[in-house]
């Protein structure tokens, strides 16, 4: 790990000011950034330490949930109001990483964790995400874990998150602050498709900081769940995951929110599945038919065609569980 200076600001404004300097990164939980720095994937000259800032609150009320950006994954997962009112969020967090990592990692940082693509994480390989224009060995290489949705000719790396997938079905809104003030952005607009600029992963501007995440309360949020399929039962990234939130009127689905992880270059909403559920009775055949539509536009590789089949099965299982 190369040497860097550590700046410990006393408030958000001075943090944002410090982050406007070149080769500067924010550090919060540090669980991904320090891995990347040890492997020379990230080579910051200055880190702006957010840890001392009082930004870790979890505020739950009848109208919604507000997570301050430094709230720990473990604290959000275990919060009784989250477990009851937004179960998909709690389940997705508990399915993430290990107890140690969840105790350290923050929800703001989790939205920014970088892909687990082995070529990205090894400086011995070319990678368009790490070195723009250098090429993508994954497209014709070891790509079993890579994305099938949102891919480009430049990058097929999977977004690794679980929490963001849950947030996709909860209409979460991120609160950002930068040199030019604050703004809000929907979770679905936060991550970018790789296209021909896979090194630009989010809409964050240089030095801009996530300060909080607002999530509305709803009947669908209360009736929600997360299914994660992975190569071992714990402490592993998703091969495929599915988040579902249903607004039910008796046995009829008034509206549905469905998203998937492990398959997209960003957290992936499945409107084709949602449309096939809206206004329909929650019968086995309806769920089966809707789940069978998942993955519209998928583009698979030599090693990951199975993900499209697994995606449909995971969505079906998640729908069955949440509708039951």
């Amino acid at each position: 790990m190369q040497a860097f200076t550590l700046t410990q600001p006393s408030n958000i404004q001075s943090a944002v000011a410090a982050a406007s300097e070149p080769q500067t990164k924010y550090i919060a939980g540090g669980t991904d950034l320090l891995q990347l720095a040890k492997d020379d994937i990230e080579t910051p000259r200055q880190l702006v330490d957010l840890e001392p800032l009082p930004m870790s609150g979890i505020h739950a009320g009848p109208n919604g949930l507000r997570l301050e950006a430094l709230a720990r994954m473990s604290d959000v997962a275990a919060h009784p109001a989250v477990v009851h009112g937004w179960p998909v969020l709690s389940q997705a967090l508990l399915a993430s990483a290990s107890p140690q990592i969840r105790n350290m990692a923050t929800v703001g940082g989790n939205l920014l964790q970088r892909t687990r693509c082995g070529y990205f994480r090894d400086t011995g390989f070319a990678c368009n995400k790490r070195v723009p224009g250098s090429g993508c060995p994954a497209i014709n290489g070891e790509n079993r874990m890579h994305a099938i949705l949102g891919v480009s000719d430049h990058c097929i790396a999977t977004n690794p998150g679980d929490m963001a997938v849950a947030m996709m079905v909860l209409d979460a809104e991120l609160e950002l602050i930068g040199r030019n003030g604050t703004r809000k952005v929907a979770i679905g607009d936060f991550h970018r498709l790789p296209a021909d600029t896979p090194h630009i992963e989010t809409i964050l501007r240089p030095g801009e900081l996530i300060t909080g995440i607002a999530i509305p309360a709803s009947a669908a949020a209360r009736r929600s769940g997360y299914l994660k399929v992975r190569d071992r039962a714990s402490f592993e990234f998703a091969v495929v995951s599915a988040a579902v939130a249903l607004d039910m009127d008796g046995g009829t689905i008034r509206s549905a929110r469905v998203a998937a992880g492990g398959v997209g270059t960003k957290p992936w909403r499945l409107p084709e599945v949602e449309a096939a559920l809206t206004g329909k009775p929650a019968r086995a055949a309806t769920l089966q038919e809707a789940a069978g539509r998942a993955g519209e536009g998928a583009k698979t590789t030599a090693m990951n065609a199975f993900k499209l089949v697994l995606l449909r099965r995971a969505v079906l299982r998640a729908l069955q569980t949440v509708a039951a």
Partner: peptide, 13 residues
Amino acid sequence: DRLVCSCLMLGVE
């Protein structure tokens, strides 16, 4: 009171 990985925490923190 939190279990953490000391390899992913800076000493100064």
